[in-house]
Amino acid sequence: MVPLNYYLALSAILFSMGALGILIRRNSLIIFMSVELMLNAANLSFVIFARQWAANSASVFNGQIFVFFVMTVAAAEVAVGLALIVVIFRSHQSIDIDQLNNLKG
């Protein structure tokens, strides 16, 4: 049995790479993908902890159910987010995140 710490470490690495993706990419679609990657890494952590607490029958599925909800929210988020990207592209003719700088003081 591979120690769960390894899995958690993988989750952390993936999460960090997602965050790094958000920071370094300008393409809003890829940024969006990075967000999905981060969500995925978080989901992995949930599953890992669910696996850890599986012996306790009372809370055996809590982690997995959280993953399920996260997936649902992610799906909704993607639906809305991609719609937003489409609208932004229509108005700016670009999906470059650096050109969307209207939120400055």
């Binding site: 965050a19 920071l23 700088n101 209207n102 400055k104």
Partner: peptide, 17 residues
Amino acid sequence: LRKLQNGFVRSYALSVM
């Protein structure tokens, strides 16, 4: 500080990070 508020989403994200 206003320079931080530059409208670039990624710089905000960097701050969050």
